[in-house]
């Protein structure tokens, strides 16, 4: 691991001695094509608020921007122990360093604390994850759906949502030349 990453992990371990961050690279195989190292940390949902707040506020971390917030559904991975991972991609502009956080959550009621009070930009990203995956963000100021309509019940990016057959408008009257 790069020194800057190691430093962040050391600082985190000092601040949260009881949390096992289990740092690991996103790509285990190593990077042949010259990309920058990408390390993710595991954080449980009950510790997420404190850890993200620390990563944002502490000068040695200074992750001022939340680049991306997404979710992965591990339903089709037979060895996976958890159903969903909410993935946070943090960027420190002053240190030019990125770190990823994975928060694993499970059915029947996947729920993680919202980080909108730390990064305002998370507001829409969390709405999108709720809309597409059905992961609830507690404490979100405006927890509406964002891309689909309000009456829509399903969460289409879940792996058990079929490509065809649900929600299609099959009850339209079909007009033919003869029926006019």
């Amino acid at each position: 691991m790069e020194p800057s990453t190691l430093q962040v992990i050391a600082v985190l371990k000092q601040a949260f001695p009881d949390v096992d961050f289990a740092p690991a690279p996103l790509m285990h195989r190593g990077d042949a094509t010259g990309g920058v190292e990408q390390i993710y940390l595991r954080v449980a949902a009950d510790k997420l608020s404190a850890v993200t707040r620390f990563l944002h506020d502490d000068e040695r971390c200074d992750y001022a921007q939340l680049c991306d917030l997404t979710c992965v559904d591990y339903l089709e991975f037979p060895k996976a122990r958890n159903r969903f991972a909410v993935v946070y991609s943090l960027l420190s502009l002053t240190r030019n360093h990125r770190i990823w956080i994975k928060c694993f959550v499970n059915d029947p009621d996947p729920e993680v604390p919202s980080v909108t009070h730390i990064w305002k930009g998370a507001e829409w990203m969390e709405r999108e994850v709720w809309d597409m995956f059905g992961v609830r963000f507690t404490g979100h100021p405006d927890p509406r759906r964002i891309l689909t309509w309000e009456d829509f019940k399903a969460h289409p990016l879940r792996k058990d949502y079929p490509l065809r057959g649900r929600g299609e408008r099959e009850d339209y009257p079909v007009l033919t030349r003869d029926s006019r």
């Binding site: 285990h28 195989r29 990408q38 991306d68 992965v72 993935v87 991609s89 990823w100």
Partner: peptide, 23 residues
């Protein structure tokens, strides 16, 4: 491969990122 990658590039509008998970 059974791995994941996050790539961001500078699009005319800003940072366009692709997060890909292979299986």
């Amino acid at each position: 491969p059974n791995d994941e990658v996050y790539v961001e590039i500078e699009n005319p509008r800003g940072q366009l990122g692709f997060y890909i998970r292979g299986d």
